[in-house]
Design a protein around this nucleic acid. Structure first.
Length: 511
RNA sequence: GCCCCUGUAGCUCAGAUGGACAGAGCGGCUGCCUUCUAAGCAGCGGGUCGCAGGUUCGAGUCCUGCCGGGGGCGCCA
């Protein structure tokens, strides 16, 4: 397995892999759709909570990171053989819906007549009325009660706007290429009937006490502004439940009913304290055992060029559908410029894959906990750690195979075999990169950090392009060399395709 | 006031479990297209890893304090 083993100073032993061993690893990978990657030794059941947009509102840039990062993690954990239960914790319940429904009812709104942007508009009108018209505000509050107690007319209106919202979300998810479906949607409303039992259980375990009229848990180790114990309110002084209660009920449900032994929440870093308290209480309640890992997968903010949270020039929120339109448009302009040979439909398809891929990759490529600056030019650049660079490397490999097949008819080339011989430094360097996949995916799952995959794929693509420049494949010096290089190409293309796939990014056949 | 995150080359960022001279892309300067997509490749220059202590044979990585940036801290979600 090793060619040389040498002591190299204090604390170092250098192992140099034998070419034949490295080559055999590549051969194994070439004959296996899983690239010779074993599944995780210990399988877990993960509940991955991500995306979580609000009903009756258009999805905007604020939902991008959770959706993209969560999806990459769900795919990666699944690939490693874990059970993955996606949960889309949609904001579909609470006081704001009383407000909106009251407005719909009084303005003579008819079901089926509104798009999501209409609802968005109506929502803003309702909000304005709530603030300026005390009579409306009072009716809105009564609507909340009606909604939560199951008043048929109120519920009917609510269902209509939920349905329209779901249509919108499905459309965005489809365009974005994420796995989330209607089956994964389990909004806050789902937990309505579980709130009371959840609070009762916490109460029976002695974890709650009334403070200032509100029922609160005081998890150990949390203090507030004045150094006093920090409460998590689970029932407001008016008797209503809040999102703390919902989140607690969701933990309980996910453990007991969904059978999770790993909880993952892909949520903005600003909610760190909320989750720390949530998990602490859940442990006190005995829902999470010693071995149970519950993790807040925190992420930073997307910034505009001015270093402030990204907004439109007018100062509004950036709608996701418009962002994706612009991504495809910008990519189309570049594709048209770089590869005029594509047919219009090919060009549109490539532009879509490249544009969306660029946006997603930019979000995944750096350490998720940090903020990043949204920059079209950088994410669509063909140099550096970007989706287009990786997609380009993949497309070049596919191009070699297309050329090879053309030549095949002349009897010049055979099918890529599996016999690998590593001679050139670039061949060896590429092979060494290729065998690193398993380690990177395991580290990604351990740390729940998709950017590790990005870094790896970029290194791999760099190693490939170096190889591509100095090692002709179809015109290799010998039949043996050509077969070997074709196999290296095959495994590289497969690795890029799988790796991008785990990030939820397509790898087009040509660019 | 307390707590969390963050500070690595001019710019944008990698550096898991502490390990060998700290890496990449962009920008700048040099080369390379009758040859598998130059949307590329090769090379040069560029860093007191915020500061100061400490632990260690060894610290960008761990601990403490300070400084700068961002965020959070009871009836919104």
């Amino acid at each position: 397995m090793c060619r040389t083993v040498e002591v190299a100073g204090p604390g170092f032993i250098n192992l140099t892999l034998e070419e034949a061993y490295l080559a055999s690893q590549i051969e194994h990978a070439a004959s296996d759709p899983r690239l010779d990657m074993p599944e995780a030794a210990q399988r877990h059941t993960f509940v991955v909570d991500y995306s979580a947009p609000n009903s009756a509102k258009e999805m905007h840039i604020g939902h991008l990171r959770s959706t993209v990062i969560g999806d990459a993690l769900a795919r990666t954990l699944g690939w490693l053989g874990h059970g993955v239960i996606r949960q889309n914790h949609i904001g579909d319940w609470g006081t704001q819906f009383g407000m909106l429904i009251e407005h719909l009812a009084t303005s003579g709104w008819r079901p089926g007549s509104s798009t999501i942007s209409d609802l968005n508009q109506l929502y803003q009108e309702a909000q304005a009325a709530f603030e300026s018209d005390p009579a409306f505000a009072e009716r809105a509050r009564r609507r909340v009660v009606a909604l939560q107690s199951g008043d048929p007319a109120t519920l009917a209106l609510w269902r209509e706007l939920i349905r329209e919202s779901e249509r919108h979300m499905e459309e965005v998810y489809s365009r974005l290429g994420v796995l989330l479906t209607r089956e994964d949607m389990r909004g806050e409303s789902f937990y309505n009937d579980l709130l009371e039992p959840t609070v009762e259980e916490l109460s029976s375990k002695g974890l709650l006490r009334i403070d200032d009229g509100a029922l609160c848990a005081f998890p150990p180790g949390f203090t507030g502004r004045d150094g006093t114990p920090l409460p998590m309110i689970v029932r407001k002084s008016d008797g209503g439940f809040n999102y703390n209660t919902t989140d607690l009920a969701a933990v309980r449900f996910r453990v007991r009913e969904l059978g999770a032994d790993r909880l993952v929440y892909v949520v903005d870093a600003r909610q760190a304290q909320h989750f720390a308290m949530l998990f602490a209480i859940a442990r006190q309640a005995g829902w999470l055992g010693e071995e149970f890992r519950a993790e807040h997968v925190a992420f930073g903010t997307i910034l505009g060029p001015d270093g402030r949270p990204f907004r439109t020039r007018a100062g509004g929120t950036v709608r996701l559908s418009e962002l994706l339109d612009e991504a495809a448009e910008r990519a189309a302009a570049i594709v048209a410029d770089k590869n005029p040979d594509l047919t219009p439909s090919q060009r549109a398809e490539v532009a879509r894959a490249v544009g969306i891929g660029a946006v997603k990759y930019a979000d995944l490529a750096n350490d998720r906990v940090k903020d990043y600056v949204f920059d079209w030019d950088r994410m669509l650049a063909m140099d550096g750690n970007t989706a287009p660079y990786l997609q380009y490397a993949h497309a070049r490999i596919r191009s070699i195979f297309r050329r090879g097949e053309e030549a095949l008819s002349d009897g010049i080339i055979r099918e890529p075999g599996q016999s690998v011989t590593l001679v050139e430094p670039a061949e060896r360097a590429l092979a060494l990169e290729l065998v690193g996949l398993a380690g990177v995916l395991n580290a990604t799952a351990d740390h729940l950090e998709p950017h590790r995959i990005c870094t790896y794929l970029f290194d791999l693509a760099s190693a490939f392009t170096t190889f591509y420049e100095c090692c002709p494949v179809l015109r290799a010096p010998s039949e043996e060399s050509r077969t070997s290089r074709l196999t290296l190409c095959e495994v590289t293309a497969q690795t890029l395709s799988v790796g991008l796939g785990l990030l939820g990014i397509e790898a087009p056949e040509r660019m």
